[in-house]
Amino acid sequence: MQALLDAIAAMPLPGDAQRIFHGRGGRHPGCEQWVLDAYPPVFVLTSFAPVGDAQLAAAGAALQARWDVLAPGRPLDWVFQHRGAGQAETRLMAGSVPEPHVVTEAGARYLVHVLRGQNHGLFLDMAEGRRWVREFAAAFSAREGRGARVLNLFAYTCAFSVAALLGGAAHAVNIDMARGALATGQQNHRLNGIASGAGVLPPGRPKAKTAPLGGSGPREAGERGGNFLAHDIFSSWGKITRGGPYDLVIIDPPSYQKGSFVATKDYARILRRLPALLADGGHALLCLNAPELGMDFLRRQVSEQAPDLAFVQRVANPAAFADVDEDRALKVAVFRKGA
Results as ranks from 00 to 15, higher is better:
Gln2Cys: 01
Ala3Thr: 06
Leu4Ile: 02
Leu4Tyr: 05
Ile8Val: 09
Ala9Pro: 00
Ala9Lys: 05
Ala9Glu: 08
Pro14Ser: 01
Ala17Tyr: 01
Ala17Asn: 06
Gln18Met: 12
Arg24Trp: 04
Cys31Leu: 05
Gln33Lys: 15
Val35Leu: 14
Val35Met: 12
Leu36Arg: 00
Leu45Trp: 15
Pro50Thr: 06
Pro50Gln: 04
Leu56Val: 04
Leu56Tyr: 03
Gly60Trp: 00
Leu63Ser: 04
Gln64Met: 10
Ala65His: 11
Pro72Arg: 08
Arg74Ser: 13
Asp77Cys: 13
Trp78Thr: 02
Trp78His: 07
Gln81Cys: 12
Gln81Val: 12
His82Leu: 13
Ala85Thr: 10
Ala85Met: 12
Gly86Trp: 10
Glu89Met: 11
Thr90Asp: 00
Met93Glu: 13
Met93Gln: 14
Ser96Lys: 13
Ser96Thr: 14
Val97His: 04
His101Met: 07
Val102Trp: 03
Val102Gln: 03
Val102Arg: 03
Val103Ala: 03
Thr104Asp: 01
Ala108Pro: 00
Tyr110Arg: 07
Arg116Gly: 13
Gly121Lys: 04
Met126Ile: 01
Ala127Phe: 04
Trp132Val: 03
Arg134Pro: 00
Ala137Ser: 13
Ala137Ile: 08
Ala138Pro: 02
Phe140Ala: 05
Leu153Val: 04
Ala155Arg: 04
Thr157Met: 08
Ser161Lys: 01
Ala164Phe: 11
His171Glu: 15
Ala172Gly: 05
Leu182Gln: 05
Asn188Val: 06
His189Gln: 15
Leu191Asp: 02
Pro203Leu: 07
Gly204Arg: 07
Pro206Ala: 10
Lys209Asn: 13
Leu213Arg: 15
Leu213Tyr: 11
Gly217Phe: 08
Ala221Pro: 14
Gly222Trp: 08
Gly225Leu: 07
Gly226Asn: 03
Phe228Ser: 10
His231Thr: 03
Ile233Met: 11
Thr241Phe: 11
Thr241Lys: 15
Arg242Lys: 15
Gly244Asn: 02
Gly244Tyr: 07
Gly244Cys: 00
Pro245Phe: 07
Leu248Gly: 06
Ile250Gly: 02
Ile251Thr: 11
Lys258Leu: 08
Lys258Ile: 06
Ser260Thr: 14
Lys265Val: 09
Tyr267Thr: 01
Arg269Glu: 10
Arg273Lys: 13
Arg273Val: 01
Pro275Met: 08
Pro275His: 06
Ala279Tyr: 04
Ala279Gln: 09
Gly281Met: 09
Cys287Val: 14
Cys287Lys: 12
Cys287Gln: 02
Leu288Tyr: 07
Asn289Pro: 07
Asn289Arg: 09
Met295Ala: 12
Met295Trp: 13
Met295Thr: 13
Met295Pro: 10
Met295Val: 11
Phe311Pro: 05
Val312Arg: 13
Arg314Val: 10
Ala316His: 09
Asn317Lys: 08
Ala320Cys: 06
Asp325His: 11
Glu326Met: 12
Ala329Trp: 08
Ala329Glu: 01
Leu330Tyr: 02
Lys331Cys: 00
Phe335Cys: 09
Phe335Thr: 09
